[in-house]
Amino acid sequence: MQQQLKHVKRAAVLGAISIAALGSMPAGAVAQTKGPSPSASIIGGTRAAEGEFPFMVRLDPVGCGGSLYADDLVLTAAHCVKASGPDTSLTITAGSVDLKSTAAVKVKSAAVYKAAGVPADWALIKLAKPINLPTLKIAETTKYNHGDFTISGWGSTSFGGDQQRYLRKATVPFLDDAGCAASSWGDEGDFYPGKQICAGGGSAGGVDICNGDSGGPLFRKNDVTDRWIQIGINSESACGHPGDPGLYVKVSTYAAKIKKEAARLHG
Rank of each mutant, 00 (worst) to 15 (best):
A182L: 07
V249W: 02
I209Y: 01
T253S: 11
D148R: 08
R220Y: 01
L175S: 06
K126P: 01
V224L: 06
E188R: 15
G243T: 08
K250I: 00
G51Q: 03
Q32Y: 02
G186W: 14
P193G: 02
E52N: 10
V251Q: 14
G189K: 07
G35Q: 13
F55E: 07
Q4R: 06
H241N: 12
A262P: 09
I197K: 03
T150C: 02
S84F: 04
S96E: 09
L167P: 10
G117E: 01
I92R: 01
A128R: 02
C64S: 03
D121M: 14
I42P: 06
G155L: 08
K260C: 04
A29T: 03
S156N: 09
L68Q: 13
D190A: 07
D223A: 15
S37R: 08
P86Y: 01
I17A: 11
S109K: 08
V8S: 10
D72L: 01
D190L: 11
Y113Q: 05
P26I: 12
G186T: 07
I138P: 08
K137F: 04
V97E: 14
G95P: 01
N211K: 10
D244H: 07
A111N: 05
Y192V: 10
T142P: 02
Q3F: 13
A111I: 10
M25P: 00
I151H: 14
C239H: 06
R220S: 14
A181F: 04
A29N: 02
S41V: 05
S89V: 09
G201F: 06
H266A: 11
V107C: 13
Q163N: 14
A262C: 11
A16W: 02
D121L: 13
D162V: 03
A256C: 03
A204C: 00
C198P: 02
A199S: 13
H146Q: 07
V172E: 03
N222K: 02
S184W: 11
E50D: 15
G65Q: 06
A256V: 05
T135M: 08
L127S: 10
G44F: 13
Y192T: 12
A178N: 13
A263G: 08
I258K: 04
A40I: 12
S156G: 14
S39N: 02
S84C: 06
